[in-house]
Amino acid sequence: MPGPDLLSSQGLRLDGRRPNELRRIRCKLGVFTQPDGSAYLEQGNTKVLAAVYGPHQASKSKSSAEAVVVNCQYSMATFSTGERKNRPRGDRKSQEMSLHLRQALTAAIKTELYPRSQIDVYVEVLQADGGAYCASVNAACLALIDAGVPLKAYVCACTASVAWRDSTTPLVDVGHVEEAAGGVCLTVACLPSSGNIALLEMSHRLHVDYFDVVLSRAMQGCRDIEVVLDRAVREHLAEGWMEEDITAV
């Protein structure tokens, strides 16, 4: 299958990463005071803010007697993309993203604990440089943890693509340049600790024979991201204790 050259002769990608290398992830929990939980996450140049309100009483129309209703809003800042966006939300793409976000988060939250209530998750993409959905899921997961919402496990999302140089090499954590070059892009949101897949999404074309390799690479990416997120949460909690001790005195 002819495709764009995503790998150099040295086996490095367009932005200098190796095929199985993630972009640098930097994150911070508890960035806002008003929401119950919030997080800021950078994955390379993709920057995302997430805020969680709730669980609180659900509005009558949404209320479900069995489980909590997760309400997600995905919006992209007008300055987030190369070309200025006219509508930060409400277009089909971001509506779809909101749906996908809800799907991934619902799979992770212990929804049965809060019947007749609602959790609001607001995600704002400040800069989109590929993998905005993944960064949103990861940030929302951190925000949920910050809010103290009981989760079954971490939910992480990661993309994977394929390079066709010499042999087929799966690439993890696809950047904007690679996305725009027209390669395949498989997005997976999963609970890495149990291996459950919460969301699968793919665009462009990929032959079935290579599907398994790409999927496993994306799952591996999710596991790697989980480690990073877990460390960030632990650091944040340690930090929190120290600060609280100081203010208490």
């Binding site: 299958m1 799907q103 498989l186 897949i197 919460a198 969301l199 699968l200 999404e201 793919m202 665009s203 462009h204 074309r205 990929l206 032959h207 079935v208 024979d209 599907f211």
Partner: peptide, 8 residues
């Protein structure tokens, strides 16, 4: 047999 779309 090329995948064009996946959605769960």
């Amino acid at each position: 047999r090329e995948l064009c779309l996946l959605d769960l």
